[in-house]
Amino acid sequence: MNGKPEIGDPPHDGQARGATRRPRSGRLTPGQIRFITLVRREITRFVKIKRQTLGAPLLETFLYISVFGAALGSRIKQLHGVDYVVFIIPGLIMMAWATNAFSNNSSSILQQKFQGAIQDQLSSPASPAELLLGFSLGGFLRGMMVSSITFVVASLMIDLPVDHPFVLLAGIFLVGFFFSQLGVLVGVRAEQFDDVAFYQTFVLQPLIFLGGVFYSAALLPEPFQTLTQFNPVYYMINLVRYGFIGYSEANIALSLGFLTVATAALLAVNLRLFRSGYRLRA
């Protein structure tokens, strides 16, 4: 410390910062600055380890496209009137958003709990809702990036239609937000890294794979065809696939409705946990 004067300089003008001060018009409010910073922190984290958080999922997605689309696709030819590779790409784009949103948020929150660094956000004036949305958006945006890059690259390589853009956007945004919330929930509950890996490997991955990313459930023998209908991810894949190629095995309006309700319910659960301080505040 170099002994310069006026280092403390506390604001003894009554109110402290961050709570009630009103900015001049056009300036960001303290609440907006706080929220942007919470999201910036999450983006900074995944960008700094981009080989793992962006590179690896992109490589994984293109390996799936190569193996299933190019290698197997040459044998399968068409499925429900579209090339096999075009049939699987919507599911892969959805899977990329879902898994990245989930793993980003669950890992980020658990790591911050481990380091104790999360105390910096928790002891700030941020409200439970601000904290929850800040932590959620990191994974949402990472999933969006991986999905968008996959979409752009796939569109350059093959003729990928977008038959119902509104259903596609509504569906995939809801899927992304749902898995962001799920990631937050698991991250908050987790006490060790094994807890996060468990959900990822034993719950999420099987549900996504068995939800029909790589095949049409209509082609499955019984009882697997019926069982698939109990898998919520099946409806998410159908929504996104319908948005792209106009083919769905499930009722689109019902799927959208259920997904909206499920996402809202998960958001409500998380908000309750953040308000109660569950596993975040002792």
Partner: peptide, 24 residues
């Protein structure tokens, strides 16, 4: 506890803290 964020630099740690407290 030295509860610093491993992913951030020294400057970012300070800047983000200021952000959490609403400083322009």
């Amino acid at each position: 506890e030295l509860n610093l964020d491993w992913f951030l630099t020294v400057e970012e740690s300070l800047d983000y803290h200021g952000g959490y407290f609403g400083m322009p």
